Simulated assay, not measured.
Amino acid sequence: MSGDSPTGSRRSRSRRPTLADVARLAGVSTTTASFVINNRPAQISERTRERVLAAVRQLHYTRNAHVTALRRRRAQTLGIHFHDYQGGQFARDPVLGPVLIGVAQAARSHAYHLVVFTGAPDRDGEVPVEAFLDGRADGLIYVHAPPGDRLMAELAEVELPCVVVFNRYAPPNLGFVDADNITGAQEAVRYLAALGHRRIAHFTHGIPNSNLEDRIHGYRLALEACGLPFDPRLLVRGEPWLDAAAALAVVRRLERPPTAVIAFNDALAVQVIHAARACGLRVPEDLSVVGFDNSTYATVVTPALTTMAQPLVEMGRLAATSLIQLVGGAPPSECRHLAPMQLIERGSTAPATARRRSRWR
Rank of each mutant, 00 (worst) to 15 (best):
Q86Y: 10
N173Y: 02
A42D: 01
V251N: 10
W241Q: 12
P332Q: 08
A278F: 05
L318R: 14
T62N: 10
A339V: 02
P121C: 09
V189T: 00
H205A: 05
L323G: 09
I37P: 13
G280P: 12
I101N: 13
N209F: 14
G280C: 14
W360E: 03
V236S: 03
P258T: 06
G119D: 06
Y142C: 04
P147R: 10
E154P: 00
M1G: 14
D93K: 07
F117R: 03
R252F: 08
D138A: 00
N265K: 01
L140G: 06
D214A: 13
A247M: 09
R282F: 03
G8D: 12
L323F: 06
G79K: 11
V143A: 05
F82A: 07
N167E: 12
M341Y: 00
A111M: 09
V270G: 08
L248G: 01
V116T: 15
Q186W: 00
A107S: 13
V28A: 03
A145W: 04
L223Q: 09
N209W: 08
R49Q: 12
V290R: 00
Q76G: 05
R233D: 15
R317M: 08
I141F: 03
E157W: 02
D286F: 05
L323P: 06
L323I: 14
Q86C: 01
S358G: 15
P311C: 12
R361K: 14
R190I: 00
E46D: 14
R253D: 08
V22L: 04
A179I: 01
P147M: 09
